[in-house]
């Protein structure tokens, strides 16, 4: 098999690319979480702001990734390289993360909040002990989409100087090397699936037990 031979012949290079790919995804996802989860929570307090922020997120999400990366490069402080790649990926993650956090917190049963407030729980307690735990399934769904999506889009960052698995595809295209293209695509897909599976397992641990049990069990 030529596909396997290609990998065997290029192990050091592929490892380097994989490492770079991973670290870009990891940083992008981390920054996105730190940034977008609080934003998602914050906008639950004002319908007006929620509409604005979600509007912006949707708009960004509609920009083709190649052009978003290209636009980043033109911004002085960012330039060619990792910073631009990170900013673009974090902006993409805004839509799935902010929207899911917002919806997850928003759809928590009003009567539960009403009762909690009536018992004297303050805003933060209600957020921390009720809204966020109850929102975990929805938030986690958004988180998994973000990770898979970021893994895929990170490949495009190769065009602005990232040396990652995307490079296999872009170089494969210029040299018309089928093995290179297919292997690059498969590796990226494999990483995405692996990450998603791991998160799925983690999700089972994090979602509160009471949300999983049902009458009769």
């Amino acid at each position: 098999m030529n596909y396997i031979r290609f990998i065997q012949d290029n192990i050091p290079l592929i490892l380097e690319y994989t490492k770079a790919h991973f670290s870009l995804v990891l940083w992008a996802v981390l920054i996105s979480l730190v940034l977008w989860v609080p934003v998602g929570v914050l906008i639950t307090r004002s319908e007006k702001w929620a509409n604005r922020v979600l509007g912006i997120a949707n708009t960004i999400f509609c920009i083709p990734s190649l052009s978003l990366f290209a636009v980043m490069v033109t911004i002085p402080f960012l330039g060619l390289g990792r910073r631009s790649a990170l900013v673009a990926l974090v902006l993409y993650a805004m839509m799935p993360l902010v929207r899911n956090v917002y919806q997850g917190v928003k759809v928590v049963d009003k009567s539960v909040i009403e009762a909690a407030r009536g018992m004297g729980m303050n805003y933060w307690r209600i957020l921390w002990e009720i809204q966020l735990p109850l929102a975990t399934p929805v938030i986690f769904a958004g988180f998994r989409i973000t990770v898979v999506m970021t893994t895929g889009i990170a490949a495009i960052a190769t065009y602005i100087g990232e040396r990652n698995l995307g490079r296999l595809i872009s170089e494969g295209l210029t040299r018309f090397n089928i093995e290179m293209i297919v292997d690059g695509a498969l590796l990226i897909a494999f990483i995405a699936i692996a990450l998603d599976t791991m998160l799925g397992a983690l999700e089972k641990k994090i979602v509160p037990r009471g949300l999983r049990v049902h009458r009769g069990h």
Binding site: D109, S111, V112, A115, A116, M119, G120, L134, G210
Partner: peptide, 28 residues
């Protein structure tokens, strides 16, 4: 909040926390 802690409040929809056990709900 202090005032509400000292007043029992029951609503029609009850509003039990679905992710907490009966004991945890009563213990709030």
């Amino acid at each position: 909040d202090r005032l509400r802690m000292g007043i029992g409040y029951v609503i029609q929809q009850i509003g039990l926390l679905p992710h907490r056990t009966v004991a945890e709900n009563i213990a709030i």
